[in-house]
Design a protein around this nucleic acid. Sequence first.
DNA 1: GGCAATCCTTACTTTTAAGTCAAGATTGCA
DNA 2: TGCAATCTTGACTTAAAAGTAAGGATTGCC
Lengths: 167, 167
Amino acid sequence: MKVSAQEEYGLRCLLQLARLSPGESLTLGQIAEGEGISQANAGKLMWLLNKAGLVASTRGTKGGYALARSAEEIHLSDIIKVLDEDMLEGHCKSYTGLQEICVHTGDCGIRPVLISLHEIVQSALERITLAQLTDTESNVDQALYQIHVGMSRGVARDIPSPKHVRS
Amino acid sequence: MKVSAQEEYGLRCLLQLARLSPGESLTLGQIAEGEGISQANAGKLMWLLNKAGLVASTRGTKGGYALARSAEEIHLSDIIKVLDEDMLEGHCKSYTGLQEICVHTGDCGIRPVLISLHEIVQSALERITLAQLTDTESNVDQALYQIHVGMSRGVARDIPSPKHVRS
DNA sequence: GGCAATCCTTACTTTTAAGTCAAGATTGCA
DNA sequence: TGCAATCTTGACTTAAAAGTAAGGATTGCC
């Protein structure tokens, strides 16, 4: 249950764009340098994000990338959805997309759990915008802490508070 | 952000053991057959779970696997932790474990978010036991729905209720 | 028009995760 | 003791994800 490299770097590249002033843009070279990845790799990520309508690209000299809409209107859920291709679809194929068929048809105990987990993560991601990530970050920490606390209500079990939240 | 094949199948194998009556056990062959995977593959998973102290194995004829403690005492978080080797450790190495080093030292914006996400998932997993999964399952659906609802409190945003929860 | 800067796209290589195989070790039973 | 059933372990093969390379297409500028 990890964030893939594609998800992580795609998110990071978008973050660079989110920090630009209106009208500015970045070239592939600049984005790649900022993340310490190859231009080719950054190109692939930006292509995906472009195709999904999250970034706008202009070609030719003076070209580059910018967000397709304001950072306030882009939620992490949008981004992850794009970079995490084969989402849980199909009938009873494995959640990972590796097994096309599995022996558990219908009532394979853990499937509802996996789906619910996915929904929980998705809910969290829907509450965070790119704009929030460009701030001082304490903003996001607060939001995530809220979610954390929210979860613990109504269920009898202690949750350690996130260590990185500055009280 | 997917559940890996190893996590999914490991969990499923444990579920088989959780359904046994006290004193019973299953051989590798039985476990493998139950999941539709090869015996070799099941062997690898059980070995990991054994090493982590979640299952107990006995060798020789009449041997097999059983849970090392009661299903009520095994939380999904325990299981996932074992099957998802390189957890977020180290300094600023990528969350995915692929990049040993990255250019973002110190304040790489998204890291706190990734960690918080991980904690959110972990919190959810800590509230579900293997025992709950062996029940009618509506049990777990309820628990997860609670978490879902809990999250939405205190944050102004609509969350679609999980489709698979039978009202 | 010509050239340079840039994005676009496809095919390829490398690395990692997943899965397999086979030989070894342990136990129970006749 | 010997054999069959079982788990254990390490090396190997295969499949998927990640990353690279290179040529094509578009644009702006002189």
